[in-house]
């Protein structure tokens, strides 16, 4: 059963609020971040970004390839810039 776009957006909205709330709660209650929590916070952020990209940022059916090529090329260059800057430090 495929959910309608409207329902998916409602679900996505509540998921994003929940994940942000969980991340906030974890940081407020645990304090200094161990490695597992750092990874979890980043995973929660990536899930929220993915919800936005898939359920909110739609593109015409025939042009979906362009969307992912644009995002991945942007992320590749951005990732390299972050890596170079951090190595420079």
């Amino acid at each position: 059963m495929k959910l309608s776009l409207n329902v998916r957006q409602w679900i996505g909205f509540f998921l994003m609020l929940t994940f942000s709330g969980i991340a906030f709660y974890l940081v407020m209650s645990i304090g200094t971040i161990p490695l597992w929590l750092l990874i979890m916070l980043l995973i929660l952020a990536v899930i929220q970004a993915t919800i936005q990209l898939v359920w909110f940022m739609d593109i015409q059916q025939g042009r979906r390839g362009y969307k992912w090529v644009t995002i991945s090329s942007g992320l590749l260059i951005a990732g390299l810039a972050i890596l170079y800057l951090m190595l420079l430090e």
Binding site: I59, R63, S73, G74, I77, Y84, M86
Partner: peptide
Amino acid sequence: VLGLWFFIGAEIVLFGCLFGVYLT
């Protein structure tokens, strides 16, 4: 819409660089 996606690609690079500077 496609034009805006290309713009978003450039914006990802911009914010990636700014995140890199911040993390450094």
